[in-house]
Structures are given as structure tokens and as C-alpha cells.
Design a protein around this nucleic acid. Structure first.
Lengths: 127, 127
DNA sequence: CCTAAAACAGTAATCATTACTAATTTATTT
DNA sequence: AAATAAATTAGTAATGATTACTGTTTTAGG
């Protein structure tokens, strides 16, 4: 678990998540890998994503149409979610590192999530 | 629809959401009203919440344990979500009104969501 | 190679949410 | 107010994401 020796499937799932910037759902990861590894199980993808979240290897970004979307880039950064096409964009800023803490006294902030919702330029230009 | 004459049930549901600061789930609203209105249907709560969201009377705040949590206060403000007890706290700030727009060129920002995740003071003190 | 623990495939179960339909409520017209 | 049409609802069934379960396979160590 805690070590660096992941099983073959577990490593494949993590690599797939780390290599894309599509902020995928569990099903997306499953279908991408299914092509090359037909005996992969959807439950395995879910189970491993849950595990990665616990270990901080992956974060939950948003929920689009009932599906949780995750990000393998755990460096603190903002996101833009397009309400029209459902795409999720990364927004990196020079002060991502010193993300604001919650101003409520006596509260302990683990993670600060900044998300913009709206229409992306592609959808605006397509109209 | 667009007018001010809501059906009895619809108005009840909206009032319940507006009157609480618990950032309720659909089921919470349903169970709260069910006590006094035993013939209320859960589907009606869901349908009306969807409608309120479309009309901008209510916003979606976060998703906790698979349940969407909403807020009847549509004034822009931040939230703190306690990972331990699942409570959602409002965080009002002097510059809520001029919430940042997404810095990506050509993108249209409808809503900026700032959420802190961590442990609330109650949970910290309880340990 | 042997053995025990961990991980997996495949399927069934769970649970939030949505869809559907017949009945009820609300609005409109007389 | 009665008659009619439109909107809303209750109750239930369907959907779809996620989780749980069980028997099998993979992995790690000796």
C-alpha cells in the first residue's frame, strides 16, 4: 500500500490519470484502458481511485452530470468548468502555492477549491 | 413559472430552503416538510430544486457523500465543508460582490465558487 | 515451488436522481 | 360558481453512478 510497488493494474490506472489533462471520470479511465486491457473491471477503477484520493495522489475536482471528475495534478490550482460542453480547464496562477486559508477562526483548511463555471471560448465561438 | 405565483408545494419547498442555513440536500428538505405535509413526494422536491436552480433562486454548493447540497442564499459567498461531520459553513467577505472572473481569455464566467475543505472547530475540539 | 495476503473480475446490491402516468390542483373562461 | 384546460403532483418504476461481495488470480516472500 504505502510503498512504491503498485500492482500492474493499479499502476496503469494511476498512469492514465496522471497522463491526461481531461479531468476524467472513473468510466473514462475504464474505457480508455479497456481497449488495451479487456479484462479490466470498472470496480477496480473505482476502488483504486478511492485509494488514490485517500493517499493524496489524486483530487476530486467537480461533479458533472452526476459523475465525479478527478485530477492527477495535485498541485493547487483553479479550474474552469464549461456548463455547455462539460470540459474542465486548468488555471494555473503565480500564487497557487499560497492558496488562502479559510478565515474562520479555529478551522483547519486542508484544501482550497476555486472553480469558475460558465461557457468556454469554444462554445462561445461555436454559436 | 416566471411569475410570482408558485403552487403551494413549490412555495413550501422554496421557503424551507431559504429559511435554513444548513445547505440541505433534497432529502433533507423532503423529510423536514414530510412531517407537516405527509403527502409530499420526494420527486416533487427534486423537480422543484432543479427548477429553482434554472431560475437562479438556489445554487448548488457541493456534493457530500454523493448528495448534492444546495444554498438558498444566492449572494456570492464562500463555503467551508468539514470533511469529518459534513457540515457546510457560510463565509461572507467584504469583497464577495466583485468575485474574480476566470482569467482565461474569451471565457464567460457565470459563477465563481470558492470552497474550503478541512475540519471545523467543533470537530477539532471534540477530539 | 509453496503459501498467505492483496488485488482483481464479474456480478449483485445500493442509493441518489430522473422519468413516467394517472390523479389532483390551479388557472382560465364562461 | 361550474366547466375546461394547463400545470403540478404522488407514487412508483427506471436509470445510472458507485459500492459491496465472492470466488479466482496475482503478487510477495520464503
Amino acid at each position: 500500500m504505502g510503498g512504491r510497488n503498485f500492482s500492474k493494474k493499479r499502476q496503469l490506472i494511476l498512469d492514465t490519470i496522471k497522463e491526461t489533462d481531461s479531468h476524467p471520470s472513473a468510466r473514462w479511465v475504464y474505457e480508455k484502458l479497456k481497449a488495451d486491457f479487456p479484462d479490466l473491471s470498472l470496480g477496480t477503477v473505482y476502488r483504486n481511485i478511492a485509494l488514490f484520493k485517500e493517499e493524496g495522489l489524486v483530487i476530486s475536482v467537480t461533479n458533472i452530470d452526476g459523475e465525479e471528475r478527478i485530477d492527477g495534478n495535485t498541485h493547487e490550482h483553479a479550474h474552469f468548468v464549461c456548463k455547455e460542453c462539460g470540459c474542465v480547464y486548468d488555471i494555473f496562477s503565480s500564487n497557487d502555492d499560497n492558496a488562502a486559508q479559510c478565515p474562520l477562526a479555529g478551522f483547519e483548511t486542508d484544501r482550497t477549491v476555486l472553480t469558475y463555471y460558465g461557457r468556454c471560448s469554444d462554445c462561445i465561438n461555436r454559436e
